Amino acid sequence: MPEATDADGLTVGQVSTRLDVTVRALHHWDEIGLARPSLRTAAGYRLYTAGDLERLHRIVVYRDIGLGLDRIRAILEDSTADVPGALRAQRAQVAEWIDRLQQLSAGLDRMIDAHERGLLLTIEQQAAICGPQWNPDSPAQARQRYGDTTQWRQYAERSASRGPEEWQAIADAVADLDRALGDAMDAGVTPGSPEANQLVERHREVFASYFPLTRQMQVCLGRTYEADPGFAAHYDGIRPGLATWFRRIIDASARAHSIDPDTATWQ
Rank of each mutant, 00 (worst) to 15 (best):
R143V: 08
Q151W: 08
A169F: 07
E165F: 09
E157K: 12
P164L: 00
Q141N: 13
R145Q: 13
A173W: 07
Y155M: 08
T150C: 12
A142D: 10
A173D: 05
Y155G: 06
R158G: 09
P164I: 02
A175F: 10
G131Q: 01
W167T: 00
W152K: 03
N135V: 03
A156Y: 02
Q151V: 11
C130L: 15
G147P: 03
R158T: 08
P132I: 12
G147T: 02
R145D: 08
I170H: 14
P132W: 10
T150D: 15
Q168F: 09
N135C: 04
Q141L: 12
I170D: 15
I170Q: 15
D172I: 09
W152M: 02
A140S: 11
Q151E: 14
E166H: 14
T149G: 02
Q144D: 12
P164F: 00
A160E: 05
A171L: 01
R145K: 11
R153Q: 14
Q151Y: 09
C130W: 13
E157P: 03
R145F: 06
A156H: 03
Q144A: 15
P164V: 03
R162C: 03
R143N: 07
D137H: 12
E165I: 11
Q151C: 10
S138R: 14
E166Q: 10
Y155W: 07
G131T: 04
T149Q: 03
A173R: 04
E157R: 14
C130Q: 14
D172K: 10
Q154F: 06
Y155D: 04
Q154I: 01
A173F: 07
G163F: 01
A175G: 08
R145H: 08
Q144S: 15
W152S: 03
R162I: 02
Q154W: 06
D172N: 10
Q141F: 11
Q168A: 11
N135E: 05
E165K: 08
P139W: 03
D137I: 08
R162A: 03
W167F: 05
V174T: 13
Q133K: 12
E166C: 07
W134M: 07
P136G: 05
Y155T: 06
D148R: 14
E157W: 08
V174L: 15
Q133V: 13
P164C: 05
A169I: 07
S161M: 15
W134T: 05
Q133Y: 10
A175V: 06
Q141E: 14
Q154A: 04
R153Y: 08
S161W: 12
Y146H: 08
Q141D: 12
Q141W: 11
A171I: 04
Q151G: 10
S161K: 12
G147H: 03
